[in-house]
Nucleic acid binder design. Sequence first.
DNA 1: TCTACTATTGATCACACGATCAATAAGTTG
DNA 2: CAACTTATTGATCGTGTGATCAATAGTAGA
Lengths: 208, 208
Amino acid sequence: MSRPARKKAARKSAAERSVEIADAACAVALEHGLYAVTLRGVAAQVDVAPALVAHYEPNMDALVANTFGTIVARELAEVGELVAERESPRTRLALLLETLLDGSRDDVTLIWVEAWALGRRNEALAERVRAEMDDWRTFLQAIIEAGIASGEFETDDAASVAWQVLGMIDGLNAHALVSWEDSGDRGTRIGHAVEGMLGLHRGVLAEP
Amino acid sequence: MSRPARKKAARKSAAERSVEIADAACAVALEHGLYAVTLRGVAAQVDVAPALVAHYEPNMDALVANTFGTIVARELAEVGELVAERESPRTRLALLLETLLDGSRDDVTLIWVEAWALGRRNEALAERVRAEMDDWRTFLQAIIEAGIASGEFETDDAASVAWQVLGMIDGLNAHALVSWEDSGDRGTRIGHAVEGMLGLHRGVLAEP
DNA sequence: TCTACTATTGATCACACGATCAATAAGTTG
DNA sequence: CAACTTATTGATCGTGTGATCAATAGTAGA
């Protein structure tokens, strides 16, 4: 599978190699987690000398932080695009919960969990984590406020509700990361929880 | 603060030293996280040679797993004792949410988050994590089932609700671990979420 | 074609990790 | 007091980490 003996790396432009390394870091992170994003790990992914990775990155903390940010921002963009197709805030929220809790993004969940832990040693990462969490909160808050404006939702603090819904999602996904056995039915009852926070009648969120 | 030069360690019985090392591992974990539970880290805490820690533990994976288990089981015992004072399942549940979300146990939250991440490399830890999560679920499930029996709660799957409530709690706490700014109001609206899952009227959970 | 530039590398350093082992010294027992 | 047991240690090994630097080789421009 792997090539234990690497002969030579094709010479590429700095810009090209730079994005190649960033992409490789993302690939390594999604495959083996943020902890595997090391000088040697990324270098092996690109099939290049470890020193080259160090040459293109100021330090590994920065690469890890940027890798986290890239992966998470991409996820937000994807989910945002997906959800935008729905008409009402209610159906958008329902689709958001469904797609984030169906287990199809467990690799990104691992990234989140590791980032929370790693953020205590990597200040650049911690800052990035806070920024991305805020982007997610803003995104969800907009949906909720639209629902308030249309009279579908009822709450006096959309920001706080958005914050808590995201916490619930991440917590459920993190749990599923470890004990995969009960992971099948996550997302079924969270609808009721969100309905409770938004003053909706029971089961409304699941209706088409 | 620290003693850079250690002269000699008082000779103690094997049993005594063994618990001393286990306690030190817990102290290190609560102070600096599970990642700081290393041969040298624990040895420094006990003020003893690193080799002695290795002498008393089969390997570090086991010590980390046991340290996690000890801390989390102790937390469950404490919370269980606290909550048992309340009369009804509803007030027990309300107190449970309050005490787990008031930020007084952030050190344990860090342990949980790190355990989820570390569990992918440490199989003994992963097993312990699943066991402790199951203990928590069983504990909360008993409260919910008592509420169903008394007619206060309404749900057709207490185990699943217990699972999801714990997920919500852990997720909110994990978020607070990173962006402490908004951590003040966590726990205020989660009541509404739980009310939604248990068929309660809005605000009932917060009533005395 | 010759030269200047620069992408790439091998070698190496300092550090922290887990782990092992022979040697030592503090108790304990006879 | 001697012999034995064992808690404790220093030294050491192998591995993995981030980081630096002089040397090399491929490329583009004069």
